[in-house]
Design a protein around this nucleic acid. Structure first.
Lengths: 138, 138
DNA sequence: TTCTAACTTTAGAATAATTCTATTATAGAA
DNA sequence: TTCTATAATAGAATTATTCTAAAGTTAGAA
């Protein structure tokens, strides 16, 4: 908690109790929560919290590069408090997300055809893996 | 057109004028249209067409593996009538999508750590590239 | 060719995720 | 302690997508 406060103090990111609760919930969280997951959790301690606060906060954090927005699930956005570039796998059945910490940048970049590198300045990449998790296999 | 009809005849996919128009619009289309793009186009010829028809049709086509649903744009789904596995790049500014026909499966598979291959049966992959297109660079 | 079951289309309502708005509250700098 | 920019809130609005129920069509069977 002290760490969190120190990290954001004097950085133009106002720390409010709601924001601290969100930061605390996200810290080290590898469950890739949705906005609703965050909202439900924060509501336990701050029953008057609104969705707007959750969305505003995650957007502010995303802008600062503190969290990643994951688009692998077409139903809803998930958030990942680990901003280190990495990849994800989603279970086609239960939608469970897993992290994959492998840097494929080199191989991906080398494979890019010229027509693409001419047309786009490439700034990043993200690999979506699809699969079926152990549970859903039965 | 004859080709399209032949392709779907007797395959349990009823061909209606609306569906034919959608198939014709999609054929060879590399613009990655959204449901709305398709709707607007079909409406020109069939002014009473509804969004439900568009969504029903693309879903039926997706189930048959005839088109791909692309999730790279968090705002909306895009559809790709080329069902060959391939990848995409999106311009962060204007959201223009480009196709990347490179098969990275080997490199991606080899990189997967054991904890993931133990937990998931991997069935596919898709690479999202992010960049800025020529136009948006000015 | 006609019949008909199964499927498709349609308009519009419903749902769900996310964003916006206007007002009130508060963090943190001075 | 005061002040101002920023944040929180409730609730409405927006947008993409799905659902519903009624009416219309397709395509195979008779």
């Amino acid at each position: 908690m002290e760490q969190i406060i120190k990290k954001y103090k004097g950085k133009g990111f106002k720390l409010t109790p709601q924001r601290l609760a969100i930061l605390k919930f996200l810290e080290g969280n590898t469950n890739h929560p949705t906005a609703e997951d965050i909202y439900v959790e924060i509501k336990k301690k701050y029953p008057t919290v609104s969705f707007a606060t959750v969305y505003n906060t995650v957007e502010a954090l995303r802008e600062r590069g503190e969290i990643l927005e994951i688009t692998i699930d077409p139903e809803r956005k998930h958030f990942d408090p680990n901003p280190t570039p990495h990849h994800h796998i989603i279970c086609s059945k239960c939608k469970k997300l897993g992290d994959i910490f492998v840097d494929y940048s080199e191989a991906l970049r080398l494979g890019l055809p010229e027509n693409i590198t001419k047309e786009y300045t490439v700034t990043g990449n993200h690999v979506d893996f699809y699969g079926v998790c152990k549970n859903c296999r039965e």
